[in-house]
């Protein structure tokens, strides 16, 4: 069913909102590439950039797929290999572009592609995009503060960070997959 919703098997044409979302996916991925190019201190790896480019286009074509995860990982690898500054303000721009990329992909797979969204839906998703982007700015400010206080080499901080991640991962829990008859209520 999800494939039907995202690929438009039910509705053959794109609606206005869906076209904007697909364009936003491409813009988000391309902005990440562009910003990394601008902020790069080393020579970027062309193969990774090509993979990001193709992955972004594939993500726009099939937003309800896992291609977006690969694109996200490639973007980070490209960032790590190309940019050396630990407090580069360009990280905020990449974070905002990644927020646009992820939010557009999530939003474009909630409905058949020919349908028009209601104003309430547009407002809610735009607000969430702003929240995610603003969170990146806030994190950058915290990172700058930590760097200023020279806590980056503190092993306690690293250990606390890893423990926090482990606890967060354990809270997600296993996910259930739908069987063919699971849509019947218990």
């Amino acid at each position: 069913m999800s494939a039907n919703l995202s690929t438009g098997a039910i509705s053959p044409t794109f609606g206005h909102d869906q076209a904007l979302l697909r364009a936003a996916i491409v813009v988000g991925g391309m902005f990440c590439l562009l910003i990394i190019r601008v902020a790069s201190t080393n020579n970027p790896i062309v193969a990774i950039e090509v993979a990001i480019l193709l992955g972004t286009l594939l993500s726009a074509a099939a937003p309800d797929s896992h291609v977006g995860l690969l694109v996200t990982l490639f973007i980070v690898v490209d960032w790590i290999t190309s940019v050396e500054g630990r407090t580069s303000p360009w990280a905020m721009a990449v974070a905002a572009s990644l927020a646009l990329f992820h939010t557009s992909m999530a939003a474009s797979s909630i409905a058949p592609r020919a349908r028009t969204w209601t104003p309430a839906m547009r407002r809610r998703w735009a607000g969430r995009l702003l929240v995610a982007a603003a969170a990146g700015v806030a994190t950058w400010l915290v990172v700058v503060l930590i760097q200023h206080l020279s806590l980056g080499t503190n092993h306690m901080v690293v250990t606390t960070g890893l423990l926090t991640l482990a606890v967060a991962a354990s809270r997600v829990g296993p996910s259930r997959r739908l069987g063919p008859n699971d849509d019947v209520r218990p």
Partner: peptide, 14 residues
């Protein structure tokens, strides 16, 4: 690389 954490923040929020 704390800058990677900045990039990861939108995904963490979502």
């Amino acid at each position: 690389r704390p800058d990677v954490l900045v990039i990861a923040t939108p995904l963490v929020v979502a």
